[in-house]
Amino acid sequence: MNLAFDLLVGLSLVWVAWRIVGSRDHFQAVVLFITFGLILSLAWTRLQSPDIAIAEAAVGAGLAGVLFMDALGGLSSSPGSPRPAVPLTLLFPCLILASIMAIAVLFVPEDFLGLIPVVHGALTDTSLEYPVTAVLLDFRAYDTWLELGVLLVAVLGVMGIRRIGSISGSRLPAPADPVGRWIIRILLPIMVLIGGYLLWLGAFAPGGAFQGGVVLAAAGVMLWQAGHPSLGLLPRLWWIVLLFCGFLSFLILAFWSLFHSGRMLAHPENKLWILGVEYAATISIATCLISLVLASPGRCRVRDN
């Protein structure tokens, strides 16, 4: 039964991906992409990694869907280009590449254990119980810090393109019908509640900074879609503090641990530091993602209405 489920999920992933690339209508491709994200979440659940399923669900259905729909909004949809989407000359080399990689994958050793024993061995002397959060925030904290840097640079890049200093201006027209506002008022507190719950859960179960941050970002974007300026309401200084707090907390930790114990990014003994850094990272991820979605349409949207 497991094999049947894996085969079905695998085949449907490949088939949906092929339809996405092969479809002529752009809107159809976006909807198929949202379905692709859904089936991928099922695959993550089947592979026993629930926190990635949560992150994929929040990012795929929540943020990517909204981003692509907005991008499509700006495009006057046409029936699609007449010629076939994927030229045949391209098909042949890609088939060769796919077969080479498929053969190479056969050589992955059956009893491949990777770094499991090492991580579980070192888990005792960190103050975090759940291995994934420990790897993210303690063993490979440098990766997480640079990844927060990537988020920050993306926000700076988007604001550079839009020539704006902050996102205070971008506000959408409130949806005409009352149901739009009503549903936001109900779903929003629940999403913020789930975001906090996932963050708190992170210390000892699948959850943590990333999932909490992404869920809060989805909540913020939902608020924005209801016509509320959400993060745009904050004065510029507060918005900058929220934006930088994740990256800054790692920076302060790095400076402090470098000059205190000579080893950069070494967490001090008491657990409060790591939790503080984790919460700051959550807030920073949520703010960066919301700012990305809010800043991309630019101010021209508000002026038209």
């Binding site: 990694s49 990635i52 992150a55 990777g114 991580v119």
Partner: peptide, 13 residues
């Protein structure tokens, strides 16, 4: 194995 999971989480963001 938690290390690839951490890699994929970082990769998704």
């Amino acid at each position: 194995d938690p290390v690839p999971q951490a890699m994929v989480l970082t990769g998704i963001v």
